Simulated assay, not measured.
Amino acid sequence: MNSSPNLNISGMGKTSGGVYQKVQLDGLATVNGDVTCQSFDCNGKGKINGDLQADTISIDGLCSIDGNTRAHSIRVDGKASLYGNINCEQFMVNGIIDIDGDCQAETFKADGCFKINGLLNSGTIDVNLRGKCTAEEIGGERINVVKGKNNNSIMNSFFTAELRVDVIEGDKIYLENTKADIVRGNEVAIGPGCVIDEVEYKVSLYIDDEAKVESHKQV
């Protein structure tokens, strides 16, 4: 890959997929086909009509990827629409992501908003809620979801910081502002703002006075 060319689109352009060293999309760019590269940077409005495989992926603008995405690290500071499955070591979300498939990562950190239509599976999950986040199912060893602080009172009145998910399953779980059907874990702490239908725990369970849990049992 070291001898591969770079791909740089700074204006409006279309090109085909391929193997590149560095890919940088600063304008209005469309890439038709699968892309393999060392680094992928989208600062404009980019679209990949295929799979994307890279060592590092950075999205500061608007980017959509129609295929599957595989990388060592992914960072989204803008908005990303990912229509396939995601597989990476590190995933950091400071902007907005919309994932149509499953997301598999070693570490997943979100300080923005996300919508995952499938499974979010990660060893460590840290979510600082800034708006509405949704997932079909979340699984991990350590899951930590807290309500983020927003100093803008106008933003607080328009955006509800909450997580909605069908099932959460992990070893050590702490949740705030979370609405879920089922939460399963070894050590489970249900913090303020949570509405949970059922909790199953093995070792310990804490329920905050400002949380609502319909039923819970030790298994």
Score class of each variant (00 low, 15 high):
Glu187Tyr: 10
Ser64Leu: 00
Gly123Cys: 01
Thr178Asp: 04
Asn128Leu: 11
Gly131Met: 02
Thr56Leu: 11
Ser3Asn: 15
Gly131Val: 06
Ala71Met: 09
Thr178Asn: 06
Asp100Thr: 14
Val19Leu: 12
Ile125Thr: 07
Val219Cys: 02
Thr124Glu: 12
Asp41His: 14
Gly33Arg: 09
Ala110Asp: 12
Ile173Arg: 00
Phe108Cys: 01
Glu106Gly: 01
Leu129Gly: 10
Thr69Ala: 01
Ile190Arg: 02
Ile173Gly: 03
His72Val: 04
Gly95Trp: 07
Gly148Pro: 08
Gln38His: 08
Thr15Met: 01
Asp34Phe: 12
Cys194Leu: 05
Ser3Lys: 13
Ile48Phe: 15
Lys47Tyr: 00
Val219Lys: 07
Glu214Asp: 11
Gly44Trp: 06
Asp111Pro: 00
Ile9Val: 10
Gly139Tyr: 04
Lys202Thr: 15
Val35Tyr: 05
Leu163Arg: 01
Lys45His: 07
Ala54Cys: 11
Lys172Phe: 09
Ser122His: 03
Ser4Cys: 13
Lys212Leu: 12
Gly78Glu: 07
Ala161Met: 13
Thr30Ser: 15
Ser153Val: 13
Val195Tyr: 06
Val167Cys: 06
Gly33His: 12
Ile173Ala: 04
Ile57Arg: 05
Pro5Ala: 13
Leu119Asn: 09
Leu62Phe: 05
Thr134Ser: 15
His216Val: 01
Thr160Leu: 10
Asp60Pro: 00
Gly193Phe: 03
Asn32His: 11
